[in-house]
């Protein structure tokens, strides 16, 4: 079975795009992720409980899965494989602040539960009822070859038919790049799945 990229989305701190087309840009003050959430007219109050890493991944998946009629019914068929550099260090730092001073020591449970990077995969799984493999890998820099290898290997699981593959960074930068990789017969959905294609699509997305 061949594999192709069906859709790809990109979000940074001021712009969001789907399949290379700009969907929203930051205007004025306020957090762009909240602006984007409102622009997409999503009704999911849990969004406001998420940390930035989860918000980024969640919105990137909303862009990719919008309008997909099988969105909520694929169960074990879909795997979510994520990568980044900074792990959950943004939330780690915020949680650490709640325990830093002995006179002001109030460890926060709702911050602590976001001190694991794979929580973003859980947020996407919960929203879309995805029961497939979820995994988070850490690397110094975006590495298309490693992404290609880990995602290809996720298809070794006999249940996997599609992978949401993403680079999601919220500590050293704010950026999410997600692709939906699908198995197919015949013509590729949009692009063939390869490390080179991933690099091209990311660069195109980054340059707007």
């Amino acid at each position: 079975m061949k594999r192709g990229i069906a859709r790809y989305s990109y979000i940074n701190d001021h712009r969001a795009s789907l399949d290379g087309k700009t969907i929203a840009t930051a205007r004025g003050e306020g957090c762009f992720l909240t602006t984007l959430y409102r622009a997409l007219k999503i009704d999911y109050p849990r969004f406001f409980k998420m940390d930035n890493l989860s918000k980024l991944g969640f919105l990137a998946s909303e862009l990719i899965l919008e309008g997909d009629e099988r969105r909520y019914s694929r169960g074990e068929e879909v795997a979510i494989i994520c990568f980044n550099r900074g792990s959950s260090l943004e939330s780690d730092t915020r949680y650490q602040a709640t325990i830093q001073e002995q006179e002001d020591y109030f460890p926060s449970p709702s911050l602590f539960v976001y001190t694991l990077p794979n929580i973003v995969a859980a947020e996407i799984a919960i929203r879309n009822k995805i029961h497939g493999e979820t995994a988070f890998y850490l690397q110094e820099h975006f590495d298309a070859r490693a992404l290609f290898e880990r995602v290809s290997e996720a298809f070794e699981d006999a249940g996997t038919r599609a992978v949401l593959a993403a680079w999601i960074e919220s500590f050293d930068a704010r950026e999410a790049f997600m692709t939906r990789v699908e198995e197919y017969d015949g013509e590729p959905p949009l692009f063939p799945f390869s490390g080179d294609t991933i690099v091209k699509l990311l660069n195109k997305s980054r340059n707007g």
Partner: peptide
Amino acid sequence: GVTRNDANHISGPSRTGEG
């Protein structure tokens, strides 16, 4: 080796043990 997700809660175990 297989991994599966509960798609239920970010920290609480699933009541049906789904994943």
